[in-house]
């Protein structure tokens, strides 16, 4: 059940609870450590608080109780966030959208340009720097959003169901691209999804959260050394892990295992 310890965690949630104004308690007491280099998937049914956990990590909302501990507080400033929608500014072209985080940090255009170009190259959008968001397909918009998240070279990349709105073919393609990016950048990722297949394919650890209160139902380690490709998707390890994750998900929804 415990994840492989790799030194000190990058960030830890300690007894974190979050209630909203209406009194709804989305998270009751979540304990979670994220270690450097991991891809942690938060898997759970709608309303289990997985997106809230991500927003807490991002500092977009504050916990009602408990604390969020960063090993190195400087890292907390180096975050990338990919939302469920691409959330591009429609009046800016691809280059300017990716440049935005640096622009907001006060970096002027000339010194920022190489970093923006690099991020565009990473996601394969170099040829589309002058395109407007409306001219891009759903998958390309999402790549642009990922480039924007990567341009600050984040220590932690947070992704909130980024591929949920895409068709299956694009989704698989972007899953593979994300794995390639991860191998190249060696960043740490926390990925929220409600897809069992996606969680098994992408992560090195799956954390299954329960529907009410976000209690951890199961933590499933996935061998990071495994080659993730079409064969892996069809192989016995994948189906075994998928079964375990599906069963945990069923428990998370308060149903019995078959």
């Amino acid at each position: 059940m415990t994840p492989p310890a790799r030194g000190a965690p990058l960030v830890s949630l300690r007894g974190v609870a979050k209630s909203f104004d209406g009194g709804l308690e989305v998270l009751r007491a979540l304990d979670l450590d994220v270690y450097p280099g991991e891809t942690v998937t938060l898997l759970g049914p709608s309303g289990c608080g997985k997106s809230t956990a991500l927003r807490l990590l991002a500092g977009l909302t504050r916990p009602t109780r408990g604390e969020i501990l960063w090993a190195d507080p400087a890292r907390r400033e180096r975050l990338g966030f990919v939302f469920q929608d691409a959330t591009l500014l429609p009046w800016l072209d691809v280059f300017a959208n990716v440049y935005l985080p640096l622009r907001l940090a006060g970096v002027s255009r000339a010194p920022a340009a190489p970093r923006v170009e690099e991020a565009l190259e990473l996601v394969g959008l170099s040829g589309f720097r002058d395109a407007l968001p409306r001219e891009l397909s759903g998958g390309m918009k999402m790549r642009c959003a990922i480039a924007r998240a990567l341009v600050t070279r984040p220590a932690l990349l947070l992704m909130d169901e980024p591929f949920a709105a895409l068709d299956e073919v694009t989704r698989i393609k972007l899953n593979n691209e994300l794995l390639a990016l991860k191998a190249r950048l060696d960043t740490t990722i926390v990925f929220v999804t409600h897809s069992v297949g996606e969680s098994v394919y992408l992560s090195t650890r799956i954390v299954v959260l329960a529907a009410n209160g976000g209690e951890i139902v199961d933590q499933i380690p996935v061998d990071p050394g495994m080659t993730r490709d079409g064969e892996y998707r069809l192989g016995p390890v994948f189906s075994q892990l998928s079964r375990r994750a599906s069963n945990a998900l069923r428990r998370a929804m308060g149903e019995d295992e078959p």
């Binding site: 991002a58 500092g59 977009l60 400033e77 966030f81 939302f83 500014l89 935005l100 907001l104 940090a105």
Partner: peptide
């Protein structure tokens, strides 16, 4: 759009930058 406001929160955008880069356009 609230997601865009979140994005600007994430990068600790000042009120002024939020206005000229997001709210005004």
């Amino acid at each position: 759009d609230h997601a865009l406001l979140d994005l600007f929160d994430l990068y600790h955008a000042s009120a002024w930058r939020r206005l000229i880069y997001l709210r005004a356009p």
